[in-house]
Amino acid sequence: MSTPQPIVSDSLAAPEGGFDWGQLGRFMLSRLGYPIIGILVLLAIWWLGGWAIASNPDTESFADFAPAPAFARLLELLANGYVWEATTPSLIRIGLGLLWAVVIGVPIGVAIGLYASLREVTHVPFQFLRMISPLAWMPVAVLAFATWDGAIVFLIAVAAIWPVLFSTAQGVRRIDPLWFKVAKNLGADGFQMLYRIIMPAIGQDIFAGIRLAVGVAWIVLVPAEYLGVTSGLGYAINDARDTLEYNTLAAMVVVIGVIGFFLDGICVSLIKHFSWHHEG
């Protein structure tokens, strides 16, 4: 038989016992600790890889891939402005590509979400087009666009449009039919239905689609920038490889990863902002 426990909850007892360090510790661990552990593991693997490359005579010349030279180089590149020079054009291309994906994908997504017949008609062509690797469009893009920049933006848009379009359509289909009925009954016309009911209802779905699109677009960006252009992160990677500056190459990879991480974070906070699932 267990002895009866005093009926005092921890939270009531805490002020007497002083500050609850255990709780703070758990909080810090969950907020900072786990990500830091993850980063350390990643660095350890990178370091081991670098060590393996350096100790193998065949691959010795790639030793600059290792974390230490890469970070040293990264600091230099940050200081001399090269990182910003390479990043800005890439971000502009990503931004334009996403803009096109949203401008085209959201209206089409809303339409196929609303009209079953349109959904049926577009199903096969859209699934077919979606499965084509964006990079397979490269020859088409090069032919169709006068500038390399135009071609790259096109490739990004082609990659980014599908998640935006499908997520929008799915959001529209999930709208409670009563919401339409009530709004109609209250006298909403088509335009009011669109911007007072449909758009706020699917804001979070649109941004969830954009989040997926950013992921794909960021991956497509680098190979797309191997095309004719002489600026951007992809160009920087290609250039570093051609000039055998492996520390620069590794540093730019870090830059790409960090920016991708932050772009994703922005999307997550936008999804939260446009979500109406508030409890309480």
Binding site: W179, K181, N185, P200, A201, W276, H278
Partner: peptide, 13 residues
């Protein structure tokens, strides 16, 4: 002429 349903169907945003 206004209709009300079993669900209040308010707009949460």
């Amino acid at each position: 002429w206004n209709m009300m349903f079993q669900k209040p169907s308010l707009y949460p945003w």
